[in-house]
Design a protein around this nucleic acid. Structure first.
Lengths: 218, 218
DNA sequence: TAGATTGTTAATCGATTAACAATC
DNA sequence: TAGATTGTTAATCGATTAACAATC
């Protein structure tokens, strides 16, 4: 039986399941039990069964799960059988790295355009895609109908451009800026990547580990 | 009263508090109540008070919180008054972007070295830091004692190099690979950045929003 | 003092884990 | 059939929210 609304905690585990199942498949696994998978992933078997049962029963009692079938199903849940057309805003260091480093097509997307304001990069190619001047954005969107955008521009630029992007029909954002889209724009899908925050959390971990050490010593 | 062990959920909110408090400070706020802050951040006032009280009372009844003092305290909790020496492994597109894009010194770190295997990049500079050949790693670590490393190498390289890094005294990792450090190496601090997983979650959001739409239509 | 707002306890909500009947 | 392992319900645990006395 499949639930209607899936909790965020479950959703955030799905890509990791998908990855592990892919590795198992590559290593020749045909079936796997929730217990075995739980040991490999550092979860409980209960949680794994609960998670998959949000979407309906993919397993078989007494047998376990068929690895490639389960992976395929998780892929479908994640929308990886689709190819959402996507543009990249900002071809600076970070934008360039994202464009070349990310395997968009295996994540449910197709990168179809890159935009920047800097005349130094406009006209150049990143991978197979030319960097266009931002003045071409409207025409490009009318013609190619991108549905999602990666925001690798400075925060001020993001604040300025966001309304245009929404006007042009883009309503999903992979946001590398600190601009808080979801507070200002309610009907928009946002996945934030706060790289700085992530590093800050490592700083916390290091420092709280050191403090613990000091306490033990004294 | 300050608790000994802080839950992960609280810790992951701290960098965001720190950011918002910084913006408030810049905008001339001297004091702020938990209610006002909660509205700006999209949280509940209760949660904000609970969070800060994990570390002791930073507020004043009837008044609220002093913005810059609270920010300073959160900074100390996050270890941002320290400068942990850090090296970057891998000077490809992603490594280069991280080296230039991240404000390490405001995140509690100092980037002191960059290493790669590719002779094309070894010897070049990224920002002010030369890219060193990985053969120099041991000497460099003995001399400069980095305590943390950013992993921007391919997954196989990470699996190979990780034990050396630990041997050389590095025990904290900002991990951009999919290699699961925390499962194989228990006494190590890891903050994972799974960019691909993050994009996959956006794919899920787009596709499940579309399915909902279809259900409403029918 | 009166009003405001915290710090903190208690209540609620949600997520994880445990248990076990169903069933392959 | 017997053994294994799921799907699912119930119990536990933890995090969030509500409430309010303390106090500035």
């Amino acid at each position: 039986m499949s639930k209607n609304v899936i909790s965020n905690s479950v959703i955030r585990r799905l890509p990791r399941y998908y990855r592990f199942l892919g590795e198992l498949e590559e290593n020749g696994y045909v079936r796997i039990s929730s217990r075995e998978l739980s040991e490999k992933m550092g979860l409980t078997a209960s949680q794994i069964r609960q998670d998959f049962n949000c979407f309906g029963g993919f397993g078989q009692q007494g047998y376990g799960y068929n690895v490639s079938e389960l992976r395929r199903q998780v892929g479908i849940i994640l929308g990886l059988d689709k190819k959402t057309p996507l543009i990249l805003m900002g071809a600076g260091n970070l934008g360039k790295a994202i464009a070349t480093h990310i395997d968009f097509s295996n994540r449910g997307f197709e990168l179809i355009g890159i935009f920047d304001v800097n005349p130094e990069v406009v006209g150049k190619q990143i991978g197979k895609i030319p960097v266009r001047d931002i003045s071409e954005l409207e025409n490009f969107c009318t013609e190619n109908k991108p549905q999602a955008a990666v925001l690798c521009v400075p925060q001020e630029a993001a604040e300025k451009e966001i309304n245009r992007l929404i006007d042009y029909g883009i309503n999903a954002f992979w946001n590398f800026t600190h601009y808080d889209l979801s507070i200002s724009h309610e009907n928009v899908l946002v996945e934030n990547v706060h790289l700085g925050d992530s590093l800050t959390i490592l700083s916390y971990a290091i420092n709280s580990a050191e403090k613990e050490q000091e306490n033990e010593d004294s």
